[in-house]
Each structure stands twice: as C-alpha cells, then as structure tokens.
C-alpha cells in the first residue's frame, strides 16, 4: 500500500498537468476562433476603418493574451465571445473587436510609451504590453486596481506600471506618452492629458456607455503641437439609402 501511494500522487499530478494543458489548448483554440471572427468584422467594416486588416502584431498580441484570465470565473466560458463582459464594480471588459481596433489605431511601435486611463481588468494593458510598449495604467476604483495588479503580476506582465487614483492629471512623471487611451472619459478630454501627449502622439477615447462603444474619438498632436480630432464609427452602417 505504501508503495502505491506515491504512484497515485504522481498520477494525480500528471492528470492535473494534462488537464491544464488541455484547458490551455481549448482556450487557445477559442482565442484563434475569436480572432478569426474579428478579422471578418474588420473586413466588413473596412470602409469605415479605412483598412482591410489590422497590424499583424495586434493579431499576435490578441492571440497571446489569455482573455479568460481577465474575467470573473463565472464568465470564463464566454470570455472569447465577441462581446463585452461584466467584471464587477459596474465595469466591463471591452468587446474584443473594439480592443483590436483601438490597439491598431494607436499605431504604436515597440518601445513606445503608452498611458491608459481606466485599467479595468487589465486586459487592454496586457495587449499593449504584448506589442512591446511600456504601459502605464491608472484606475480610479480601488478594488479594480488591486485585482488588476494581482492578475497582471500572476500572468507575468511585470513591466506594466499601475497606479490607483484620478486619471484626470495623467502620469506627469512618466510623460510624454506616444499614445494615450482614455476609457473613462467623463464629459471632457482632460487638458493635462493633452499636455502629456507627445508631439506626433495619438489619444483614443471610446465614447459610449459601459457596454456599447458608440464611436471612437482620435486626438492627434502634430509635430508642432497642434491638436486635431477625428471620429471613427466602428460599424459598417450607412444611413442613406439609394443613389444621391
């Protein structure tokens, strides 16, 4: 009996490893299916987005980040569906299609400095980190900040800098930023963030409610410091019918 016990233990450990691997394999397959679906959506929306596909690095980043780890356990089964998912505290993790578009529109090179206002679950920060960016992220809701810190650390995203506090004033010590993503805009674009945007940099603000992004506001700062905004409708809906 004594000699059987270690064998049983070994078998149990092996089974657990195999099960984990099977899980990982299953989630990886779901991720690939999710990306395939987003690719179709991007093609369908090409006229609005002015592009037929996204940067290959964005697809690669989406494929590497385990989205199911960024949602509550009870939502993991739907983590790879192309829709927003509730993460508690009245917040959501954005629809993957919108995450992909925003990441692509930021147009960041590896090593770029990017500020995110509204960490949420940390998923968007993780995707940006996978692009090779230096990510700084601020969250106003303390429990969300704590959960994101633990999660990102557990998943090995140690390079992402997190802070709990008011995103209005940005992260002055780490400015300027090549890209800024404001997922918690409250009726205005905070002027301190515009100051912290580097010349040639780009800010993206998804406008809408917790669940639905209505449109994306893109703020570009020219090399000479001038500001211009552009609005992108992430849906292939043309309101006029018939010929002009």
């Amino acid at each position: 009996m004594r000699s059987v016990a270690p064998l049983l233990l070994l078998a149990a450990v092996a089974a657990a490893i195999v099960a984990d691997a099977a899980d990982d394999g299953e989630y990886a397959a779901r991720r690939r299916a999710m990306i395939a679906e987003i690719k179709v959506d991007v093609v369908a929306t090409a006229e609005m987005l002015k592009r037929e596909s996204l940067d290959a690095r964005v697809w690669a980043a989406l494929e590497r980040v385990p989205r199911h780890e960024f949602v509550p356990p009870e939502e993991q089964a739907v983590a790879y569906e192309n829709r927003p998912v509730s993460i508690g505290h009245g917040q959501t993790i954005s629809q993957p299609y919108i995450v992909a578009i925003m990441t692509d529109l930021l147009n960041l090179r590896a090593g770029a400095r990017v500020l995110e206002v509204g960490t949420g679950s940390g998923y968007q920060a993780a995707v940006l980190a996978e692009l090779g960016c230096r990510v700084f992220s601020i969250e106003i809701i303390e429990p969300l900040h704590a959960e994101a810190r633990e999660r990102l650390s557990r998943l090995g995203f140690d390079g992402i800098r997190l802070r709990h506090g008011d995103g209005y004033y940005g992260w002055k010590e780490e400015a300027p930023f090549d890209g800024i993503l404001v997922t918690a805009a409250a009726g205005q674009i905070p002027p301190p963030l515009l100051v912290q945007l580097a010349p040639g940099g780009r800010m993206i603000i998804p406008v809408g409610s917790s669940f639905f992004v209505q449109d994306l506001v893109i703020v570009d700062k020219t090399k000479t410091g001038e500001l211009r905004t552009r609005q992108v409708l992430p849906v292939s809906f043309v309101p006029l019918t018939g010929a002009h």
Binding site: D166, G187, I189, V195, T229
Partner: peptide
C-alpha cells in the same frame, strides 16, 4: 478627493480646469 468635472464637449483649445 477626486472631484466631478463635467464640461460636456469642452474645447481642446483650452487648458482650463
């Protein structure tokens, strides 16, 4: 601590808080 600052659609041409 983190005050409300509602200024719907405020111009980007100003840095006023």
């Amino acid at each position: 601590k983190i005050p409300f600052r509602q200024a719907p659609g405020m111009s980007l041409a100003t840095a006023i808080e």
